[in-house]
């Protein structure tokens, strides 16, 4: 008998949150030594864009949660459409992020500018990697149950992936909330 293995994604989520937690603490620790520099640098960030992106991710997270609910009721077509909607909303995040990076780089702010911007690029960059991985997962989920498996098996496997993939996507969302608060808001006026 196959044991239910879907909850194992929770272990990955807990670990990933832990490592972001470590990064947040290291950031705050480094900040203690150079508060003025960190605050000044954080004023250069565009807080309204960060806020906008938080709303984008929250909205996409909601659509994915919705997809999960209808998926569990067996309404796979609706789940597929909601996944596509979630992806469409989430793609705005990437556009905004690229604009933001471009705005920073075009005025010569890079990883090497100072300790704050090293963290800015590291935290948002690693988060962006998580985001891109999540978009791939959403794209796969938007295909619906696999046509290459027997129907019953395909459904069961789709539900497992739907649950695991959605959980991962919510993690991408909740990590951004802390990143946004810590990088953009704490130093804001």
């Amino acid at each position: 008998m196959r044991r239910e293995r879907a909850p194992a994604i929770w272990i990955f989520i807990a670990m990933d949150c832990t490592s972001f937690g470590v990064l947040f603490l290291v950031f705050m620790y480094e900040r203690m030594g150079q508060v003025a520099l960190f605050d000044e640098a954080s004023h250069l960030l565009n807080a309204p864009l960060g806020f906008f992106n938080a709303c984008v991710l929250i909205t996409s997270s909601w659509l994915v949660a919705w997809a999960n609910i209808v998926g569990r009721e067996g309404r796979f077509d609706e789940a597929r459409r909601l996944m596509l909607a979630g992806m469409a909303v989430a793609s705005i995040f990437l556009i905004v992020k690229v604009i933001e990076y471009y705005m920073k780089l075009s005025v010569g702010i890079t990883v090497k500018t100072n300790a704050f911007f090293l963290f800015y690029y590291a935290l948002t960059g690693v988060h962006l990697m998580h985001y891109l991985g999540g978009m791939v997962i959403l794209a796969i989920l938007a295909q619906g149950p696999s046509p290459y498996l027997p129907a019953a098996e395909a459904k069961a496997s789709y539900l497992r992936w739907l649950e695991g993939g959605s959980l991962y996507w919510h993690m991408v969302d909740l990590l951004w909330i802390f990143i946004f608060s810590i990088l953009y808001l704490i130093g804001a006026r």
Partner: peptide
């Protein structure tokens, strides 16, 4: 499961070495 997921987390987190 925890060994597998922990290990996959470890190798994914290597991306921090980018910096």
């Amino acid at each position: 499961g925890w060994v597998v997921w922990f290990s996959m987390f470890v190798v994914v987190s290597f991306i921090l070495e980018t910096f």
